[in-house]
Amino acid sequence: MYSIATILILVAIAVGLVRAFRGPTLFDRVMAGNMIGTLTVLLVAVLGFMNGRPEFLDIALVYVLISFVSTIAVLRVYVSRHGDPDSD
């Protein structure tokens, strides 16, 4: 059962990757990256349970935070490059 969930999540990640490659805008790619981050967290959690090693959850916990910060960081870089003082 865990393996079915794992396969479904992997397929979802593959579908998300297609969107990341297709674009067409930068924001579509960042959005796909953000979604893949969420899916990876869940994948790590499910894999941890499948192998009977719940310590994997610590990795998932850290990954949630990193994935959020990386999304915000990419957007910050984009906005600061294009110099918009309003949208801080």
């Binding site: 959005m31 969420t38 967290v41 916990l61 915000i72 957007l75 984009y78 906005v79 949208s87």
Partner: peptide, 30 residues
């Protein structure tokens, strides 16, 4: 284990909308 799962859920519920909103606003500004 359950406490950690709840924490993961908590972070997702709070960071998810923030990331989506940041994306939407950045797209609109651009």
């Amino acid at each position: 284990v359950t406490v950690k799962l709840m924490l993961i859920f908590y972070f997702m519920v709070f960071s998810g909308p923030t990331a989506v909103h940041a994306l939407a606003e950045a797209a609109q500004v651009s």
